[in-house]
Structure formats: C-alpha cells, structure tokens
C-alpha cells in the first residue's frame, strides 16, 4: 500500500506491506533507529513516538494507519542544534543508563510538558507508567522531567560541569 507519512517534519512516500508495524517502518524503511522495540505485547513502551501529537506505542500501530499523519520521534526533538529541555533534563539528572527506554521516555515527557507544563512527581509517574525502565528505578526519570519543567527555555549548553548536576 502506498502511504505518505510526515516524520519529524519531512514527508516520506513509501509502498509498504499492510501488516508492517510503524516501529519497523521507522526503523527499517526510514533508518530512524532511535525508536526501539522491546516486547510483543505493547507493555514496554520503548517504541513510543508521538502520532499527531499524542504518544503511541509504535509497535501497536500499523504503518498504514499513519498515512497522512505526522510522526515525531526522538530524532526530531533537537531543533536547530538546540536540545529539547527534556533531553537536557535526562542528562542533568542521570535519567538514563543503558539508554534503551530513553527515546520513548523522552517522547512521553515532551508530550506531558506540552499539556501540563508543571506536573507533580505523581503526574510524571502516571504519564510514564505505561513504559518500563529496567535500569533507573524511575527516580531520576521523574527528576529529569521535573528539571525540564523548571527549565522550559534553557539555552544550548554542552557543558558537563559538576555544578550543574542535580542528582
């Protein structure tokens, strides 16, 4: 089937099998391997992307269902060389270890802050409750999102100096 999907602002026309999952479309057809895959049952959430602004588990969406829609993945978070505050927050607060859940966590966090710029810890926990992380025990992910909420418009900094660590 022929589909047109806008991914991170760029339009792609592709002819795909009807059964192709969106996660495989992104990874295999478009080479956007930042979106991961981790389970067969829509439980882990490492495949989370935003579809027309709403987080979805891309392993549970067919590529053809994204026809005419717009997808945002982790690769689309950085704008003009400027990291998104959630990306900075994850670095600041050590919100990642192996990094496998991170892209999905970042997408949900971005969506949360778009809709609720000042979430409580509990609201952050609820927002990410459909996604697993095996490394961080979630604590620092919550802190990272809170950090991003508190720094909505921070300028780019590649600094990794000690003072900025908020662990």
């Amino acid at each position: 089937m022929k589909i047109t999907v806008t991914v991170n602002g760029q339009e792609y026309d592709r002819d795909v099998e009807p059964r192709l999952l969106l996660v495989h479309f992104l990874r295999d057809e478009l080479g956007l391997t930042g979106t991961h895959w981790g389970c067969d049952t829509s439980n882990c959430g490492v495949c989370t992307v935003c579809l027309d602004g709403t987080p979805v588990k891309s392993c549970t969406v067919l590529a053809v269902m994204a026809d005419g829609k717009s997808v945002r993945t982790v690769e689309g978070l950085e704008q003009d060389g400027e990291l998104d505050p959630v990306q900075k927050g994850f670095v600041e607060c050590h919100g990642l270890q192996c990094g496998f859940c991170t892209p999905g966590m970042l997408m949900t966090s971005r969506w949360l802050l778009d809709n609720n710029p000042d979430p409580s810890d509990h609201e952050v926990r609820e927002a990410i409750s459909g996604q697993l992380c095996r490394c961080t025990g979630y604590e620092n992910i919550v802190r990272a999102v809170r950090w991003a909420a508190e720094h909505p418009g921070t300028s780019t900094s590649t600094s990794t100096s000690e003072e900025e660590v908020t662990a």
């Binding site: 690769e75 590649t158 000690e162």
Partner: peptide, 26 residues
C-alpha cells in the same frame, strides 16, 4: 565549552550525548 572535570565526583555521563538523541548503536 569543554568540561574540565578532573578526578572522582559527580559528573555527567559522556555516553548520554548519543542516547538522548536516539543515536546509540544497539
């Protein structure tokens, strides 16, 4: 700006730069 952190102590992870951009290679 480069980081001048020397020795032990809290320091951001070097590997994070690729992971937060979805640029790890699994």
């Amino acid at each position: 700006m480069t980081d001048t952190h020397t020795g032990f102590g809290r320091m951001h992870r070097k590997e994070d730069a690729r992971f937060i951009r979805g640029r790890g290679t699994y």
